[in-house]
Amino acid sequence: MDFQSCVNIKKEWDIVGARQLGRDIAKKIGFGTVDQARIATAISELARNIYLYAGTGKVCFEAIEDINERGLRIVAMDEGPGIRDVSQVMEDGFSTSGGLGAGLPGVKRLMDDFDVISRQGEGTEVRVVKWLR
């Protein structure tokens, strides 16, 4: 079961679509209910950030099935305004939109691996992985 599927984020409802698909994939890989909830929540945060700050973008899923490691990789990418100071947005409570500012630091805690690549004016890519234990 090696696949890559993406959900385009264009309208608000796509946030729900992305997290539902992500949860289904997580379930198929064999994640338990708590990790399924963590994964779905992380996807929701990443998809909402795309919708709010970049307008459009996509969230892609990839099942990782190596001999000794299994997991789910999620990549959220957009061609929006980018993030000026990545270390600042990783602080709990930092928000430019009146949100809780829990999104990105929360995603980092919910997942195992976390990377943000962002260039101002070019876009943002957030790559996260949850490993199956």
């Binding site: 209910t33 708590v34 399924q36 909830a37 963590r38 809780l100 829990a102 929360g106 805690r109 919910l110």
Partner: peptide, 14 residues
């Protein structure tokens, strides 16, 4: 509130 939801909220810092 489901156990999985409670755990996720704490991870989120909420």
């Amino acid at each position: 509130i489901q156990p999985a939801v409670a755990m996720t909220l704490i991870d989120l810092g909420i």
